[in-house]
């Protein structure tokens, strides 16, 4: 029974990683940029949720939607201000800019409200169900279902809408897409908006599930989500979901064997192994470089 319990723990953790990883992977897929500021959007989402619930007394779902909306705007602003003018610059320049944006947001938030942590208000009824000796809290069920719903909506947007088609086209070949009359800039902004909204949702979910939020909370989940995205194959949406869940379960299994101090190391060992043996990720196809 202990193992089923651990699996439940791992999937709850993994679904949060997956939500953040989706944003990474979408942005990478479309402009080949690893957006290191993504973890900070996640943090801002958590704080917006916190103020919406604690300050204005909203309940969980409105707070979630509000955080998603604000984060979508912030994501677009970041893209317009920081990345757009670097579109034709070297990739390393854009990457360094992303790190700069990330630090700017972290310390900007610290400057505004200080570095002290905040405790999330209890917004969800926390009941514990016992099924075959396994304790599953209602919160982890809700988190899992919200994550799954958001992922289904995302799949729908990407595969069934015009905008999704444009996204896929720009991702495949931006120049050709432009020739076909697709507004590339708008499509990229839209991608940032969706990715950031998912990060914002992950932030609110993280806050309600783990209670503690602080301005530097985005760093480690951001890195872990990056590992998840690479694990699944960066740029591939189902890969990010599976990568996130696998990473969550692996971390939990490592702890379950009594090596809890190795948990973070395990995540990064996975990153190294994937980069050495299958750089395109679990879901990636090996593409031959054309000379």
């Amino acid at each position: 029974m202990e193992w089923i319990q651990q699996l439940v723990n791992g999937i709850s953790l993994g679904s949060i990683y997956a939500l953040i990883a989706l944003g990474y992977t979408m942005v990478y897929g479309i402009i080949k940029l690893i957006n290191f500021a993504h973890g900070e959007v996640f943090m801002i989402g958590a704080f917006i949720g916190f103020y919406a619930i604690g300050g204005w007394g909203l309940s969980f779902v409105p707070a979630l939607l509000l955080a998603m909306a604000v984060c979508a705007i912030i994501g677009v602003v970041i893209e317009r201000v920081a990345y757009k003018r670097l579109r034709n610059a070297t990739r390393i320049a854009a990457l360094i800019t992303a790190i700069g944006v990330s630090l700017f947001i972290q310390y900007g938030v610290i400057y505004i409200r200080g570095a002290q942590p905040e405790a999330y208000p209890n917004v969800l009824p926390s009941k514990t169900f016992e099924i075959f000796g396994v304790n599953i809290s209602s919160q982890s069920l809700l988190i899992l279902s919200v994550s799954i719903i958001l992922m289904i909506i995302l799949q729908f947007i990407v595969h069934r809408t015009k905008m999704g088609k444009a996204m896929r086209a720009v991702s495949f070949d931006a120049e050709a897409a432009r020739l076909m009359g697709i507004n590339v800039d708008r499509t990229i902004s839209f991608t940032f908006a969706i990715g950031s909204a998912l990060a914002g949702a992950a932030g609110v979910i993280f806050g309600t599930y783990y209670t503690k939020i602080d301005p530097l909370m985005g760093v480690i989940p951001g890195l872990k989500a990056f590992v998840a995205a690479v694990l699944g194959g960066i740029g591939i949406i189902p890969g990010a979901m599976v990568g996130g869940l696998v990473l969550g379960v692996v971390e939990t299994v490592v702890s379950a064997f009594g090596y809890s101090l190795w948990r973070d190391a395990a995540a990064f060992i996975i990153l190294i192994l994937i980069l050495i043996f299958k750089p395109s990720g679990l879901f990636g196809k090996n593409t031959r470089e054309k000379v």
């Binding site: 651990q6 723990n9 709850s12 953790l13 993280f206 783990y210 503690k212 909370m217 971390e251 702890s255």
Partner: peptide, 12 residues
Amino acid sequence: AKDTDFRSTLTR
């Protein structure tokens, strides 16, 4: 310090 998920160790 700074960990947030203790559920797996607590299960043990």
